[in-house]
Design a protein around this nucleic acid. Structure first.
Length: 601
RNA sequence: CGGACCGUAGCUCAGCCUGGAUUAGAGCGCUUCCUUGGGGUGGAAGAGGUCGCAAGUUCGAAUCUUGUCGGUCCGACCA
């Protein structure tokens, strides 16, 4: 490709709304154009990156046995009603919808379980056809509340989604493991450091799931891990051991104490310490958070309890309420109560809610990890300006108190698998794999005939990779002060040739052109910068755009030399006759190295 | 959905508070020419904006008021 024909448009300044490196650099390099909020046009350079990522994904998923298909983006409401997810997605307002002229409503695919399950139910009739895995690379839509961070969180994006069908959960387990390996290989080939963590399965549903994370300070997810034991989980899901706290002396019976104007735990603790209850800390308090949970059919009030120095994990709480609701579930929406709702539920101003008398909620749930072994506590009295000291959950709580795991695990908590301690880091979710089980196949009556002459619902798995998000995550892992440093396997071009002589310097130009032909013939993705611009401008541009290998034909040409420089590496003078071979060897070695790393997974 | 803020040239922004002399500006980018030719070179000349939109106040509105549309950030929520 000739740079003069590439419509290059780099920016010197950062766009005002670009906060993170990938957004900033992709905009400055001219990869991206913002078309609307959460809507981006992929420019010619980004298209090449996306194509390369797609090719690797397709290659590895196919290698794991996947069959590529293409499903419609417009999906009939009726199909989604069969699985019951129409209501879920309407409630969370995650799905964009359109209507046709007849007034029929369609969802724009946020994911495709319904469509593929319907497909499988038509084309798979026998257990002999199983297992099978279909996948596609296609546009997805999510009506994000707050699109942000450039390509990271958008309304429309490209995702590889795969769906496997099985006769048994053992078969699903085997494919799940294969897909996990395929994911690791995929990211290795792209030069991304990605790792699998245990995850909550969210609105997709199912029995187990892992997310693939790219470590990045700007990641929106928090991961808890222990490098020694290998445990790693999204904070939404993470379990752990929480250290107990020393007991302090409190009255033997539950005693009401006036705590005028002190609703927050920190205030109550300070007040009590100043009024004769020395040694009480937040960890001796009972934190009560009141919520309203909505399912498709019910609105439920909930009081959640956790030790005073810890936080409620709303994902865990949602799951706990869903379990309690049984057939009336699942919970589609969970929100903290408004002040007037708190007053109605406790008869007191916010800040004085507790687990004892006066609490009027459908469910009261206490955290097992922090409260099951707790001693006497300080809790709200459900009476304005009063707390209870010496409150014993087992003795003084209202009947019907449920126990579940609600606490948010944090760095410093014990690893659930070993004696070690958990650490915390941020990650970008680039992939997710789920064991769905029979959730969709049962709901949609997607069945096959087994060897026992009976009909069985498919056991299913599903697997996603955010193709366009991977491009952004790759930049987050590969940039420096000058710009992007693409891994060669996903770079828009592999090599750039920069003629850096005076205009009309025939020797320089012909040397550059000769190298250009040589590399093209070798199948290298090469660009020659034939623009009429100063060398400095060209260098800046290609560093920003992030081409992995650069050949400069300049003042050395007179002595038969050109310069070869990997992006971020050292400049080397190379004889003109060898430069092409040097570049070709470098590119091929890089690709081979990534390939080998992938095969080792 | 709550809170804060912003819409002026392709991009980054100034001007607005305190309405009139700015004929709406700067830098970057773009066009033409000269210069330069190894890290965003120097110079000259240009093109480019009904100041988001609508209504109002006023002799006069980019500037004040109201509405509206769009956007950004924080929070809530959310795969």
């Amino acid at each position: 490709m000739r740079a003069s024909r590439m419509n290059l448009a780099t920016l010197r300044e950062d766009p005002a709304d670009a906060e993170i490196a990938s957004h900033r650099l992709l905009m400055r390099g001219g990869f991206l154009h913002k078309s609307g909020a959460g809507l981006y046009l992929y420019g010619p350079l980004l298209q090449r990156v996306i194509d390369k990522i797609s090719r690797i994904v397709v290659d590895e998923i196919s290698r794991a046995g996947g069959l590529q298909i293409t499903m419609p983006i417009m999906q009939e409401q009726a199909l989604w009603e069969k699985s019951g997810r129409w209501a879920t997605y309407q409630a969370s307002r995650t799905m964009l919808t359109v209507r046709d002229r007849a007034g029929q409503t369609f969802g724009l695919a946020p994911t495709a379980e319904e469509v593929v399950t319907d497909y499988a139910s038509h084309v798979i009739t026998s257990h002999k056809q199983l297992p099978v895995c279909f996948f596609q690379q296609h546009t997805k839509f999510r009506d994000e509340i707050r699109p942000r961070f450039g390509l990271m969180r958008v309304k429309e994006f490209i995702m590889m989604d795969a769906y496997s069908f099985h006769a048994s959960s053992e078969s699903l387990d085997a494919t799940y493991a294969q897909m996990r390996t395929a994911y690791q290989r995929t990211f290795k080939r792209m030069g991304l450091e990605a790792f699998a963590v245990e995850a909550d399965s969210g609105a997709i549903g199912g029995s187990g799931s892992h997310e693939f994370m790219v470590a990045a300070a700007v990641g929106e997810d928090t991961i808890l891990f222990n490098p020694q034991s290998g445990y790693a989980a999204n904070v939404e899901r993470a379990i752990g051991r929480v250290a107990a706290v020393g007991k302090v002396s409190m009255p033997a019976t539950c005693t009401a104490v006036a705590t005028p104007g002190h609703g927050h735990i920190s205030e109550v603790v300070a007040f009590l310490n100043a009024n004769g209850y020395v040694g009480i800390t937040a960890a001796h308090c009972l934190k009560c958070v009141l919520f309203v949970a909505k399912s498709a059919t019910a609105e439920t009030t909930v009081a959640a309890f956790v030790r005073g120095d810890r936080e409620i994990n709303e994902v865990k709480l949602t799951n706990a309420i869903t379990r309690l609701l049984g057939d009336a579930g699942p919970v589609l929406n969970l929100r903290p109560m408004q002040p007037d709702e708190v007053r109605a539920a406790t008869g007191a101003e916010p800040g004085f809610a507790g687990a004892g008398e006066g609490l009027r909620v459908k469910f009261a749930i206490a955290d097992k990890l922090t409260l099951a072994e707790a001693g006497p506590l300080v809790g709200g009295a459900n009476k304005t300006d009063h707390h209870l000291v010496g409150f014993d959950l087992a003795r003084d709580a209202l009947p019907g108190l449920q126990w579940d795991e609600l606490v948010t695990i944090r760095a410093g908590d014990g690893d659930p698998r070993s004696e070690g301690v958990l650490e915390e880091k941020r990650g970008i979710e680039v992939g997710h794999i789920f064991k769905l089980g029979t959730k969709y196949s049962e709901a949609m009556k997607a069945e096959f005939l087994g060897p026992d002459q009976k009909r069985h619902p498919f056991v299913m798995g599903c697997y996603g990779i955010g193709t366009s998000r991977v491009a952004a995550a790759a930049v987050e892992q590969h940039f420096d002060a000058d710009g992007i440093t693409w891994p060669v396997t996903i770079a828009p071009y592999e090599v750039v040739i920069v003629p850096a002589g005076k205009p009309g310097d025939v020797a320089v130009e012909s040397a550059a052109e000769a190298l250009y032909s040589e590399l093209q013939q070798a199948g290298i993705d090469v660009v020659i910068d034939d623009r009429d611009a100063k060398p400095g401008v060209k260098f800046k541009d290609w560093d920003l755009i992030g081409i992995p290998f650069r050949i400069v034909c300049g003042r050395g040409v007179a002595e038969g030399k050109v310069e070869c420089k990997p992006r971020g590496g050292e400049n080397a003078d190379v004889a003109m006759a060898d430069a092409g071979a040097t570049a070709i060897a470098w590119v091929r070695a890089q690709i081979a190295q990534r390939r080998a790393a992938a095969d080792a997974c």
